[in-house]
Design a protein around this nucleic acid. Structure first.
Lengths: 327, 327
DNA sequence: TTGAAAGCGCTAACAT
DNA sequence: ATGTTAGCGCTTTCAA
C-alpha cells in the first residue's frame, strides 16, 4: 500500500497537496495531473483506517439483523444496501441470532470502529442502546421499536393482523386460530392482538389452544400447527404471524393430509420461494425491502446532521385475498 | 469515547500500562485493578481504528457473495460466521450481485480497511485479485475457483451432476434434460458436464433443447422449464443445477398441470423452505454451511501465518434418491 | 495555491 | 514491571 508521502515524493509536491487532490480541494490543474499520474503509477488507494482515525467517522453503516437465513431480513438488507450504496456508503451485515449478548458485542464494534451509523432490528425489548446513543452515533430501529429516543421504522402490525383475520372471516371461516411468535416480542404481539380483536368482534368460535406461541422458525410453525390439529375442536383456519412459521404450518397440514380448501390460511409475510400454492391463501405482504430503504434514508439524514426529534415511521402492509394468489 | 490517556490519568498509571492491561501483558495485579476500575468508570472501549492503524490489520474478515437472497449463500455465510466467531473474528458480509465492478469495489475496501482477510465467491472468471494478492492479504475462493494462486474450497460439481442424473436414470427416466446456469461459469459448467457424461454413457434419448441455460434465479428456471415442456419431444425428467432454478422449474410444472409422478426431478442444492414436496425428487445436497466453515478455517490458518502453497479443497455432495425425500 | 506540522488513539521498542 | 516516546497514514489548521 502506497502512502500519500510516496505519491507526494514521486509527484514532487507535499503530502497535503496529495490529500487535497483526493478530497476535491483547490489544487492547480498541473499539480493535480502530476498527483494523479503518480498515484496511478503506485496503485495508491487512500488508507481508510488512517482517514477514519483522523476524521472520527467512516462511510460504513451497519445493519444488525436477528437471522440472516430469514428471507424477510435479507430482503430488508437489500433495501438498506440499495439506498446506502446510492449515497456512497458501504453496508456491513451482522447476524445477532436474537441474542442480546451478540447484539451488544456488535454495537460495541460499531462504536469502536467508528462506523457512521447503525440500523438495528432489536433482538429483544431489553436492547442496550445506552452506550451508542450517548455517544451520539445515529441509530435507526427497524421492524421493532425500542425504549430509546431513536428513529424507528415499523409495520402496522396490528392492522396486518386485523387484515389477515378479517379476510379469512370474509372467506367464510369461523374457527380461526393464530400461530403467534414468542410471547413478549412487540412485532408478533401486535399481530396477534389484531387477530384477537377480529375474532372477538366477529364472535367467531374460539377455543382454548387457538392461540399458539411458537419460535419464529419453520419447526415452530410446524409444531404449532400439529398442536392445533390435535385439539378436540380443531380450527378451520389459521393466521401465521410470520413467513417461516407459515411454511411449517403448511408442512404440518400436508403431512396431516388436509385437503387444500378444507383449511384457511393467512400468512403475514412472503411465503419464500414457494414452488406451489397448495391452497389459496390470504397473504399480507410485509414491505421488507421498503422498510430497509426507509430506514437507510432516515439514517443517512441523521448522519448528514439532521437533529430533529426522533421519528417513528409506520408502513402499512397490503392484504391480498385468496383469489389473487396466482403464481 | 474515552481514550487510554484518560483512563491512565484516572488510574494514575501510564498509557502503556493501560494498553498492556487490555492486551494481556504482564501488569501487577494492583495496577490492573486500578485500570479496570477507571476503564469501567469511563466506559472505555479500545478504539479499533487506532489499533488497526497501528497494527496494520484488524479482526474482521469479509465475505463477498453474489446474492444475499439465495439461501445457499446465506447458509454458507452462517458456516463462515460460526467459525470466525469462535476465533474471535467478526464477519462483514458484502453483496456483489455478480457484478465484477461491485466486487472490485469491495475488494478495495477490504484492502484499504485493512481487514484480516477475505472469502470470496467470485462473480466471474475475470475476478481481479491482482491487487489484493500482491498486497499479501489472505484470500480464499469459495464455490468457484480463480486463476490466482489462492486457496479454494469447492464442491465436486461434476460428481454432483453425475449423481443426480444417474439417480434419475435408475428411477426409470430416459429423456433427461438439464437446466444449467449461465454458460461460462465453472460451477454450473461442471454440473452440466456431469449430466452430459451420464446421458451419453447411458445412451438416453437426447434432443436439441434438452440443455437449457438460464440465469441462476427462480425466473430463469421457470422459463427454462417452460421451454423444455414446449419441445416437440419433451423430456420426462430434468436436472436443475441450482436451488432457485429448481423452484422455478417446479412452478412451471405445476402451472402446466403435470402430474406428480409423470416427471422426474433432480435438484442440485436444497429446495429452500419447501412447504410441500409436490413429487418425490432426487436431491443432491450441497454442503453450503460446511463449505463456509472450511473456507473460514483455511483463511484463519493463513491469517495465522501459514505459508504453504495454495490448496484447493473439494467437498463431495450427497445424493439422496427420491424415496428418501420425506419431510 | 501550497507547504509544514500537529495530532487522531493506539502499540511496541527501548529505557529504567 | 512500568514509563517514555515514536510512529501508523491521513486531514487540517496556520503561515507563507
Amino acid at each position: 500500500m502506497a502512502t500519500i508521502y510516496e505519491v507526494a515524493a514521486l509527484a514532487g509536491v507535499s503530502p497535503a497537496t496529495v490529500s487535497r487532490v483526493f478530497n476535491g480541494q483547490t489544487v492547480s490543474a498541473e499539480k493535480k495531473r502530476l498527483v494523479h499520474e503518480a498515484a496511478t503509477k503506485l496503485a495508491f488507494t487512500p488508507n481508510r483506517t488512517a482517514r477514519r482515525l483522523r476524521g472520527q467517522s467512516s462511510e460504513i453503516i451497519a445493519l444488525l439483523i436477528p437471522d440472516i437465513e430469514n428471507p424477510f431480513f435479507t430482503a430488508l438488507a437489500r433495501g438498506v444496501e440499495d439506498c446506502a450504496r446510492e449515497a456512497g456508503y458501504s453496508l456491513v451485515l451482522c447476524n445477532t441470532d436474537d441474542d442480546p449478548a451478540k447484539e451488544l458485542h456488535y454495537l460495541e464494534i460499531v462504536a469502536s470502529e467508528q462506523m457512521a451509523g447503525v440500523i438495528l432490528a432489536p433482538a429483544s425489548d431489553e436492547v442496550d442502546l445506552g452506550a451508542i446513543v450517548s455517544l451520539g452515533r445515529p441509530v435507526v430501529a427497524v421492524d421493532r421499536t425500542t425504549p430509546y429516543p431513536v428513529d424507528a421504522v415499523k409495520i402496522d402490525n396490528r392492522a396486518a393482523g386485523i387484515g389477515a383475520t378479517t379476510a379469512l372471516f370474509e372467506a367464510g371461516y369461523r374457527r380461526i386460530a393464530c400461530i403467534a411468535g414468542p410471547a413478549g416480542i412487540e412485532t408478533t404481539e401486535d399481530r396477534f392482538l389484531g387477530w384477537r380483536q377480529v375474532v372477538a368482534a366477529r364472535k367467531t368460535v374460539l377455543h382454548d389452544g387457538y392461540l399458539q406461541h411458537a419460535n419464529f422458525r419453520v419447526d415452530g410453525g410446524r409444531a404449532a400447527m400439529r398442536a392445533l390439529l390435535a385439539l378436540d375442536t380443531p380450527p378451520d383456519a389459521v393466521v401465521t404471524t410470520n413467513n417461516l412459521m407459515a411454511v411449517g404450518a403448511l408442512q404440518a397440514l400436508a403431512a396431516a393430509g388436509i385437503a387444500p380448501d378444507a383449511f384457511g390460511l393467512a400468512v403475514l409475510g412472503e411465503l419464500p420461494f414457494m414452488a406451489l400454492t397448495p391452497t389459496p391463501f390470504v397473504q399480507v405482504r410485509l414491505p421488507a425491502r421498503h422498510l430497509g430503504r426507509t430506514a437507510a434514508a432516515m439514517l443517512l439524514e441523521r448522519i448528514g446532521g439532521d437533529a430533529q426529534p426522533p421519528r417513528t415511521v409506520v408502513l402499512r402492509a397490503e392484504v391480498n385475498p385468496p383469489e389473487e394468489q396466482a403464481l
